[in-house]
Design a protein around this nucleic acid. Structure first.
Lengths: 388, 388
DNA sequence: CTGAAAGCGCTTACAG
DNA sequence: CTGAAAGCGCTTACAG
């Protein structure tokens, strides 16, 4: 291994002089070096292929210029390709992105334990900051605070909002507005939100959860249009009572319905299928369904084939997230494309600001709007509502 | 930060004694410590939340127990979820998986430069070994040798075989055999291999490339069955001359055909679509098509809707890789599921053996067979061949 | 402008 | 069984 000392010895000078030229803070070094010597040092370093020892640098307490990224892997240990785009933004900013994962014996489902382990690793690696993309999975605020207290700024991406921690997420409300507007303008009248049962009973979390934000946004979008919103609750077992509002056909109506079992991982496909089966079986007069994400939409679409239901004529369907496969199936999806590049940029801005100016515990939350992609799971020409 | 010294001072003993208990090689330390003292040290460490400084440990030249994993990100910087499963295997073995990516300004398409940068990072991080999953993208052997020479063992996963470097890959030949057998047993007779034009003209690489392996496996599987194989070449422009072998209907025939433009990234979808369009347009009498991967199959399947071609009656279609979405579309795919878990395990075995016993430059290449998934893009009951 | 010293937190010899 | 020392490769004060 060629070190600063190697170079110093060869050049007959002292090691710190070499460090002043090759070190990471060479610009603000107090050691003056003549231009000629500097050049000789640089030449020799180049010639020998000198690379600074990262570990030695880190020992001195300097910045590592490494940003840790934590993803929530699915049950088989894989990571969403979209999420990995967060790393691309980090590289563009001149930092290194390091991804760590849980170590053996840890059950990925035990959210809190898993996160604790990842946070430990981040502290061990002395990263300058942490980005955490855990989707809607549980992250204890205390673990994030552990990083912040150790001087490591944190920004969460999508997922929940934690008090005092910077947060960047897709704007659920704006996306919902786009979807509702799109559906109504193409003649759909009875819009059904495929809702999720609550995972957690924590009151604290309630106001931050994706499902809750989404439900609130749905209600808001419909009420803005003077439309009534009815709650059907769980529709996967008994046939729900159908409110009068669903009988009339002119005015838009919002319907909120859910399956009893929460969808996780691949279960999303089945959850989507199950919902559409329930709607058909109970003859619930919805004509457009807003699914939680593209995976659920895909599962539902498949089920419509077997049920003999026509899409988009009989049911319009929308997803969320804009996965690439959704654009290449039998019906390209009408969905909201997740603005991951913009999210990555904003998240990085928040992180870098804190790395450079110190940690900021003023809650800062940024919402980035997604884009509507109009596909073939909804009508492409305005027409009369079905069920007439 | 609580260090060994903190604990030593509090306990009134010397720091190396603490190190002998809490250090990574505490078992084979030459320093004897009484059980009582050992316990007191452990208790105090626990109480103060002591964590060893990874950087200080690495400075002493000890193993880092970190394995670097290098993926080839697609054009938008995302990573295949399947590939990230490699990391899960590493964790199960008690190592840490670290993923690095290129730094700014690097064009991911400039394969060699990109890889050089990643290799530098791996060396800087003093990883114990490197796993590299670059698909069929270009990796210069010299870069891998740079790691090996620095004492860092390397194993490549899928992609090409490099002389002297351990390699684990899906068994293309076995997969081809499964597909051909499946198609023939369900009555398909004229099997068309969707081939790729060569990317590289390097003679050296030719014997290792996925497309070449695949083509050879196809020919082998058909010749084993005394079937003739005809080369149509490029079919995306002019109508090819159809050999007599394609006119007769009883005996199986293998057909090799390609589009002129290589498919990369999302272009795979279009490539699949383009091939099926060419077949229909030129009335090429194939009745089953073996696509390069599931993405191409999906693109082709979509095109069949627009072309009014019936799948699986008129054309049977198979993919490769077994992406999860392929199981949930209008036609669940007949495909070969990539045995990623087994691949990860084998790759890790090869890597750990070298980490523990020193680098081994005897070329070691392991092929892991995939699994056939019989779906709805091929017939599910034996029947007569079409075009009769 | 240049050199000698201290220190980061460990591990690994080497003395008592 | 226990302590004092050297060294890994840097950075950052402090002398000349």
């Amino acid at each position: 291994m060629v070190t600063q000392k190697t170079i110093a010895t060869l050049l007959g000078i002292s090691q710190p002089t070499v460090g002043a030229v090759l070190g990471k803070h060479s610009n603000r070094s107090k050691i003056g070096v003549s231009p000629e010597l500097r050049q000789r040092i640089l030449d020799k370093a180049q010639e020998l292929g000198y690379r600074p020892n990262l570990f030695a640098q880190a020992m001195t307490g300097a910045r590592t210029r490494v940003i840790g990224v934590i993803f929530y892997p699915d049950s088989v240990g894989s990571t969403s390709p979209q999420e990995t785009q967060l790393c691309a933004g980090i590289e563009r900013a001149g930092y290194r992105a390091i991804t760590v994962r849980g170590i053996r014996g840890k059950n990925a489902d035990e959210g809190a334990v898993y996160v604790r382990d990842l946070v430990d690793q981040m502290l061990d690696l002395r990263v300058d900051g942490v980005m955490i993309a855990f989707g809607s999975s549980y992250v204890p605020t205390s673990e994030l605070m552990r990083l912040m207290k150790a001087g490591v700024p944190v920004v969460t991406v999508n997922g929940e909002l934690h008090p005092g921690i910077a947060h960047v997420a897709v704007d659920v409300e704006a996306g919902m507005e786009l979807l509702v507007e799109h559906l109504l303008s193409f003649g759909y009248r009875r819009l059904l939100l495929s809702d999720s049962p609550p995972f957690s009973t924590s009151e604290h979390l309630k106001s931050f959860r994706y499902s809750d934000l989404r439900r609130a946004a749905f209600i808001k979008a419909l009420e803005r249009r003077k439309a009534e919103v009815v709650q059907l609750g769980f529709v996967d077992q008994d046939k729900p009572a159908l409110p009068a509002a669903l009988r009339q056909r002119k005015r838009p109506v919002g319907i909120i319905a859910a399956n009893r079992v929460p969808a996780i991982g691949q279960g999303e496909f089945e959850a989507g299928a199950k919902l559409i089966e329930s709607l058909v079986r109970h003859r619930i007069p919805a004509d457009a369904i807003l699914f939680r994400n593209d995976t659920a939409l895909q599962g539902a679409l498949r089920a419509t084939q077997e049920l003999g239901v026509r899409v988009p004529e009989q049911y319009g369907m929308t997803g969320h997230d804009g996965v690439i496969w959704g654009q290449y199936g039998s019906h390209p999806f009408t969905t909201i494309r997740m603005p991951y590049r913009e999210i990555a940029e904003k998240a990085l801005q928040l992180l870098l600001a804190q790395i450079e100016n110190g940690i900021d515990t003023e809650s800062c939350s940024i919402r980035v709007p997604g884009y509507l992609i109009a596909g073939a799971t909804t009508r492409q020409t305005a027409s009369e509502p079905p069920h007439t």
